[in-house]
């Protein structure tokens, strides 16, 4: 079995099973804990819980004015990173084909050269994020192994993907195999570290939205 066959075959399969298993496990394990919602009488004219949940998710997309100055880098870099990843992951033709093979769903792709450019920007944003983390005393204090590992495991697929696209460093199928393996490690780690925020942030925001919405308070 070649490395590529291993990557595309058993490695990917095991990684995806761990990803799905771990993510649903963590998801249900957290959200099936007791729901203790305060049954207080909502403020008159308060948003309905659903509207408040939705508002919570939306409002948190941009910082309130007083936090903009200090948080601008975090927010802007965060957006660059997340949009970059989204574009690279979901709008690159080979990736769409992979998703189509898995789910049957398909959508138009962006030109590869554009995706490569976005990939480079995404990498730069990741590096900038790490530098920021290492330079800030607050971030150094609150960062844990998870933060650095998640960073690395996010960086690797982007890096190996770019190398594969550029045919740099090794033969293409080796690069492709390494790229797929790096995605495997990403998927395997995903449910266990902070990458899980990709699913949980919606609930976290929505719940605060509901709590504050009921009170007629801001989010």
């Amino acid at each position: 079995m070649t490395l590529l066959e291993f990557a595309r075959g058993p490695a990917l399969q095991v990684a995806m099973i761990i990803f799905v298993l771990g993510a649903t496990w963590r998801f249900f394990g957290a959200l099936l804990l007791p729901w203790r919602l305060a049954p207080a009488e909502p403020r008159k004219g308060a948003l309905s819980p659903i509207a408040a949940a939705f508002k919570g998710v939306v409002v948190k997309m941009w910082p309130h004015k007083p936090f903009q100055k200090a948080g601008m880098f975090t927010f802007v870099n965060g957006y660059i990173l997340h949009f970059g990843l989204a574009i690279v992951v979901f709008l690159f033709a080979p990736h769409i084909l992979f998703i189509k093979g898995l789910t049957g769903l398909s959508w138009p792709a962006l030109p590869n050269n554009l995706v490569y450019t976005v990939g480079v920007v995404t990498m730069a944003s990741l590096v900038a994020g790490l530098v920021h983390r290492l330079r800030s005393p607050v971030l150094r204090l609150i960062s844990r192994f998870d933060d650095y590992l998640s960073w690395l495991l996010t960086l690797l697929p982007v890096l190996t993907g770019l190398l594969a696209a550029a045919h740099l460093g090794a033969r293409y199928e080796t690069l492709l195999a390494v790229h797929i393996l790096s995605i495997c490690t990403f998927l395997i780690w995903f449910p266990f570290g902070k990458l899980m925020h990709a699913f949980m942030f919606v609930f976290s925001r929505a719940m605060t939205g509901v709590r504050m919405g009921q009170r007629g308070a801001e989010l």
């Binding site: 066959e5 595309r8 075959g9 990917l12 399969q13 995806m16 099973i17 761990i18 799905v20 298993l21 771990g22 993510a23 649903t24 496990w25 963590r26 998801f27 249900f28 394990g29 957290a30 959200l31 099936l32 804990l33 080979p94 990736h95 084909l97 992979f98 189509k100 093979g101 898995l102």
Partner: peptide, 29 residues
Amino acid sequence: RPLSTNLRDMGPALAGAALAGAALGAGAA
């Protein structure tokens, strides 16, 4: 089959994993 598709049909395995994950999560909760 395009080069980027995985080699095996993972649908049933993933559905099983999702169910098992949900069960384990429910058990943990």
